[in-house]
Design a binder for these strands. Structure first.
Length: 323
DNA sequence: CGGATTTGACCTGCGC
DNA sequence: GCGCAGGTCAAATCCG
């Protein structure tokens, strides 16, 4: 389909691990010894939730500090998009990954094992809103088609995309927002279909795609597109949904991190060729065991699959149980 | 009965 | 220009 690569401003060949670790993402560095919880101590007290971070009040630096302090147990792959040939979108791509758990984690439910975050520029700015309504008037149809063609030439800035990789048995992860499924497509070279969801909130254009990695079927790739223009329906102060849907997290113009094509193509067959210009960074976070009250947590907080990560990152994250 | 999901058809952009 | 693949629509169906 629309080969996303033409819409992305990133080039995996500009990927430079070490350099970018220290420049673009100083907060993402390899410190695989410490646990996330240890790093929470220095967390910016002004940050009370991801929602706070992502609904416009936080800049990149603040977040950088936040991640620096909260996620120092990380490994980073990133790059800057400085390829002048490609349109710079200011959006970035990234992964936050939880490493496999310790032996103790074997008793932990599958929902709390691993999560990654990726952002990327969307490839599908096209919207049926631009399409003319179906009618009997063929002349009108043709006219509107021509108009559409003209419109198409003006490339719309695409909504930022933010992918979230989660190790989960459940495809559609709860994130606090309400979604309506509007499509499902088979993905080339993958036995797993891709599902398309749209935020059910009125006038909210946020969409997300959910697919399973063909390489590691335990990994669910959830790609958010756009930014919610409303609060999370759930009574949570922060959610990964808002984080993922907001480009404010990593939208510094200086950030155009690229991810090696290999990484994505390992996970998504469709990225192998078509999305080779997608870019991202990734961050490894050491895993630590979650507590065992999964059901109880789900009742308290709907973001039942990934919030373990956010709990690690945010002391005040909803549902975090103080010792 | 209303909202959510399913699913085939259609549209669009890209590569050849 | 054609075929392919991704993305979306919308009628049919499901479900609480």
């Amino acid at each position: 389909m629309a080969k996303d690569k033409d819409h992305y401003g990133y080039d995996p060949f500009y990927y430079n691990h070490d350099e970018l670790n220290q420049t673009s993402f100083p907060f993402l560095r390899d410190n695989s010894h410490s646990t996330p919880t240890q790093n929470l101590q220095g967390f910016d007290p002004s940050i009370t939730s991801f929602t706070d971070c992502l609904h416009g009040s936080m800049d990149y630096n603040t977040l950088s500090r936040a991640f620096d302090l909260s996620c120092s147990s990380s490994e980073v792959i990133s790059s800057i998009d400085d390829n002048p040939k490609k349109p710079s979108t200011g959006d970035s791509v990234g992964i936050i990954r939880r490493n496999p758990g310790t032996p103790n984690s074997s008793s932990v439910s599958s929902s709390s094992t691993e999560a990654e975050v990726i952002t990327q520029e969307d490839s599908s700015a096209k919207s049926k809103k631009d399409k003319q309504p179906k009618g009997d008037d063929e002349d009108a149809d043709e006219k509107s088609k021509k108009e559409n063609k003209a419109k198409k030439k003006e490339k719309k800035p695409r909504e930022p995309r933010f992918a979230f990789l989660t190790k989960s048995e459940v495809d559609h992860l709860e994130d606090g927002y309400r979604w309506r499924k509007y499509g499902q497509k088979a993905v080339k070279n993958s036995p797993y279909p891709r599902s398309y969801y749209r935020c059910t909130s009125q006038k909210c254009i946020v969409k997300k795609r959910v697919e399973r990695s063909f390489q590691d079927p335990t990994i669910v790739i959830t790609t958010y597109e756009g930014q919610h223009n409303h609060h999370c329906p759930a009574t949570l102060r922060g959610s990964a949904a808002s984080m993922l849907s907001s480009h404010s997290l990593f939208n510094s113009p200086s950030m155009g991190p690229s991810i090696p094509q290999d990484l994505l193509s390992q996970l998504l067959p469709s990225y192998t060729q078509n999305d080779h210009q997608d870019s991202m960074f990734h961050q490894n976070i050491t895993h630590h065991p979650q507590h065992h009250h999964q059901q109880q947590q789900q009742q308290q907080f709907p973001f039942n699959h990934d919030y373990g990560l956010l709990q690690d990152l945010l002391p005040s994250f909803p549902g975090k149980q103080e010792p």
